[in-house]
Design a protein around this nucleic acid. Structure first.
Lengths: 67, 67
DNA sequence: GCTATATGCAATATATATTTTACATATAAT
DNA sequence: ATTATATGTAAAATATATATTGCATATAGC
């Protein structure tokens, strides 16, 4: 499923996928695929993304109803 | 650095590394290395571990002072 | 002493995240 | 019409997470 929380947080910051990718040291493809829910990113990357967007892991990657 | 929060949460549940590994579908080596801070685990594995230990991502994998 | 459990460590193999490169479409501005 | 930005997608290459197997030590109980 798509990671809508990540996409929203990025857009709220006025960043493009490329902007975020540059800041966290990844590629825009990686960011795009994470937002699309087609990647299972590493913890380190998740942490970098969260810090860059001034959010926490829970804010962006935690879903209460997840099995 | 070691992930002391994960280790504590596991021990508090009375689980061995092997127990936790079985419950999340990983090996005890993987759990041990994550606790030792020598692995950069995938988000999915982090989520499974957190759910199994009745914690959240932030509880086990988020450090406020992390860069 | 012996056995079982828990953990650490290392080498090799496998699965998969991520990069690289490329091409595509849509939109906005000039 | 053209240029630039933003995004989606895909194939191949590379990096790395994870599994597998094996051996080691320490501890607790019998």
């Amino acid at each position: 499923m798509e990671n809508i929380k990540l996409k929203l947080a990025r857009v709220e910051k006025g960043m493009s996928q490329q902007n975020l990718a540059d800041l966290v040291g990844a590629t825009r493809q990686t960011i795009g695929l994470i937002e699309k829910g087609k990647y299972n990113p590493s913890l380190n990357l998740c942490v970098k993304i969260a810090k860059t967007l001034d959010r926490t892991l829970n804010d962006l990657f935690w879903y209460e109803d997840k099995k």
